[in-house]
Amino acid sequence: MPKTGIPPAAAASRVTQDKWVAVRAALREAGDRFADLVLSVPDPSVLATKDWSVAETAAHVTGIAMNYTAMVSEGRRPLPIPEVRQYVPVTTVDTIHTGLNRVQLESFPERDPVRLAARLRGAVAEILSITEHTDPARVVPWLGDSRLPVAGVLAHMVNELLIHGWDVARAVKAPWRMPEDQAALFFELFLVEIGRNGYGHMLDDDRPVRPGRIAVEFRSAHTAPVTFVLESGVATVAEPDVPADVRVWFRPSTMNMVLFHRFTHLQAALRGSLRVWGRRPWLLPAFLRKVRLP
């Protein structure tokens, strides 16, 4: 995931017309399901995560969708929650919870499930309307001075809905589906594309730079193979024919849950949803200490 991007020849874009159609359909469907789930919860004060109630989780997801209506716009539009503006360019994976996420929740005090569901549906509809005729490969600024195609922003929103939908559903023992084709969009259109276009300051930390090179190839039944390379603290994206130290096969829904710390690697492996092998598989933890998510 290069800070300034890498030559296009090094890794092909995952933004295709088929995936654009798929991510738009996934956003509409997951947004409706999430809103319906929130409306079905008898007590929205029940904890959905370690720190957030169902209502707060819904407000977090809704706030992201609201601000994305501005981020994906082709013209300059003010963020609907303007208090987060100063945090957007400096956010890292290590500061997002104590900075941007905290300020967004404090500045968006709505906690009524009915109004939140309506605001979420409205924001999703607006995102889809704004981007109906846009170029899905159009690159826009994202958090931490990173760069994403519009399709990647929508894929991130789909993942927020899927992950936090799981949080809410688990809290109230309700069913929740995480379709593999929808989950795969996060890997293809967000993770790979932020690597191709530049991750900015998102992976900044104070840890010593690990010398040497680690190449990790990722494969699944729902994504095209790709290799991420970490060399002297800088991550890049390459095609899968680059020699790999570690090879990972994954089920997209489980991989996303691992990346966002809902499952451990061992739990994923025991489910048969994550397999690791290669000539130096012990290097994967070192790779993931740098190439990580909040």
Rank of each mutant, 00 (worst) to 15 (best):
M1T: 08
H133W: 06
R279I: 11
K50R: 05
Q182N: 12
L274K: 10
L230K: 00
I214N: 00
A9L: 02
A238W: 08
V242E: 14
D145E: 14
I127A: 01
L27Y: 04
M202S: 00
N101Y: 12
F250L: 15
I6Q: 04
R275P: 02
R76F: 05
G122A: 12
A9P: 00
T227V: 13
H265R: 15
V291N: 10
V46N: 05
K19I: 02
L105I: 14
R28S: 15
A48F: 04
F250N: 13
H201E: 12
F34A: 12
P82R: 06
A235Y: 07
V72C: 09
F187T: 14
A48I: 03
V168L: 08
S146M: 08
R210L: 13
S146T: 11
P109H: 09
L120D: 02
P179E: 15
I130A: 12
R77L: 15
P149V: 06
V216W: 06
R76I: 09
E29H: 10
T57G: 04
T227N: 07
F263A: 00
F187N: 11
I163F: 12
L154F: 12
V90Q: 04
S53R: 14
A10G: 02
V38D: 06
A286F: 08
P80M: 09
A65M: 13
A235C: 14
N67G: 04
H60E: 11
G165L: 12
V23I: 03
A58T: 06
E126C: 09
G195M: 00
L259N: 12
G63W: 02
A184V: 07
R219Q: 03
R262E: 01
S40Q: 09
A35C: 08
V140I: 14
P141T: 08
E180V: 11
L191T: 06
V46Y: 10
A174N: 10
D112K: 13
D204P: 03
G272A: 07
I163M: 15
V103W: 02
M255E: 13
R28C: 07
D51M: 03
R33Q: 10
R102E: 12
A118S: 11
A125M: 06
A9H: 09
L288C: 07
V103F: 05
L185G: 00
S146C: 04
A22N: 02
L79V: 05
L270V: 15
A9V: 11
W176R: 07
R275A: 13
W282L: 06
L37Q: 05
V124D: 12
G198L: 08
T131M: 01
A58Q: 06
G5M: 00
L270P: 05
D204F: 06
G144I: 00
L274G: 03
A12M: 09
A137L: 09
A151D: 00
G31N: 09
A30G: 03
R14H: 07
T49D: 12
A59E: 01
A244L: 05
R77Y: 14
Y87R: 06
R280S: 08
G99H: 04
G278R: 08
G152N: 01
G198I: 09
F287P: 13
R251A: 04
E83T: 07
L288R: 15
L203T: 02
E217S: 15
S53V: 07
V237L: 14
P225Y: 04
P141R: 03
V93S: 11
N67C: 15
I96T: 14
A155H: 04
Y87M: 06
R111W: 09
A70C: 06
I127S: 01
P8Q: 03
